[in-house]
Design a protein around this nucleic acid. Structure first.
Lengths: 208, 208
DNA sequence: GTCTATATTAGGATAGAC
DNA sequence: GTCTATCCTAATATAGAC
């Protein structure tokens, strides 16, 4: 299932990431991981203490990846609005949901401080990163001062996370897109020159 | 665990609703349901065909309840903005998440057309209900014409669903509130008289 | 309607051979 | 490091007595 060059621990972690994304922590069994990784029982318990230990490694990696993916877009150039838009419009595997956010609905993950920590850290980082960008926008007069950077950032992250919910509910990615477009229109409304035709956004990029 | 007057099927359904909310479909076993309901093995299988059958009854009821709760606020009086605000600010058991939306992350629920149907119907209804209210607001000049009722409604529902994610991630309800407040500020920005101090909302109600 | 077997597979892991 | 054997409990029922 994986390149022959990949070590057994690597294959186990990658398999766990896949299954955690697809079925969550509660729905993922050690046996399923082993089969997906093409590793034996003993092999798994040799490299990892057990399911929670392996899940922790998987979650940490997934969290790190999500952060890097977001930073790749958010760290780009362009106006504050443009960068936020680029983040919201970037390509996503919408129907699979957010591999980090979905863990939030996993009772065993939430119950464990260790397993929850990377989730909290990642979502917090994302919100703060967005808040920083929005703050820049306010400082430079791009956004109206009424815009609270931190709360707006929360709304943006929430819209994305909730967009996944809507998409999976209706089994179509367009539900996600609708929510994002709705938010972007509102955000453009806070752009200075708000009395002017609100349909003229900032400019520049779009996808990633 | 329940009133002695409650019938066994009733207790089973209510128990299933609780557990589905708390642990999801995958994380809820028939045995756990029976124990929570104070019913025996045979009792459960006498009244229901099995776990999926019981879950369907539970999900349908939860969906219906959510709809009624939302309608109680959305059907109130006041401006379009006021009703949307009342919906967003209504009291919620934030840290428990949305009993309907969370099912969306349950692989077995999503894989079953029957189990998914009530989820889809409820979220679709909510979005459409909000879209209707927003449309009224646009028609009556309360909101700028640039506001797309349907997409804005999607963004609202998504913010709520995602707000639960943020709250559970950080283990505090305030994360939900931040997202909602962020969205409300943006929504007020689409209110006519947008050039004016944006901090003066429509009026009337607030919670429910 | 409810209860008590009984059954099968999976979950989650340990022990020890190779 | 990996494999096989073994263990115990839970998951998800079915069968049949009461």
């Amino acid at each position: 299932m994986y390149s022959a060059r990949m070590s057994t621990p690597e294959r186990l972690i990658e398999s766990t990431r896949e299954l955690l994304w697809e079925r969550g922590y509660v729905g993922t069994s050690p046996k399923a991981i082993q089969q997906h990784a093409g590793a034996g029982q003993g092999s798994m318990y040799h490299h990892f203490a057990g399911k929670p230990d392996l899940a922790l490694a998987a979650i940490r990696r997934t969290a790190e990846e999500m952060r890097a993916t977001a930073e790749a877009v958010l760290g780009g150039s362009g106006s504050a609005y443009a960068r936020v838009e680029a983040y919201l419009l970037r390509e996503r595997d919408v129907l699979r949901g957010c591999p980090v956010g979905r863990l939030t609905m996993d009772p065993d993950v939430i119950a464990s401080d260790e397993l929850r920590a990377p989730v909290t850290a990642t979502l917090d980082w994302l919100r703060d990163r967005l808040a920083g960008i929005l703050q820049e926008g306010v400082d430079q007069g791009e956004f109206a001062p009424a815009l609270d950077p931190r709360e707006t950032a929360s709304a943006i992250v929430a819209t994305v996370q909730g967009g996944y919910v809507l998409a999976r509910s209706s089994a179509t990615p367009t539900a996600f897109d609708a929510a994002v477009r709705g938010l972007l229109v509102l955000l453009r409304g806070m752009t200075t020159g708000c009395g002017a035709p609100v349909d003229a956004p900032a400019a520049t990029t779009s996808s990633n």
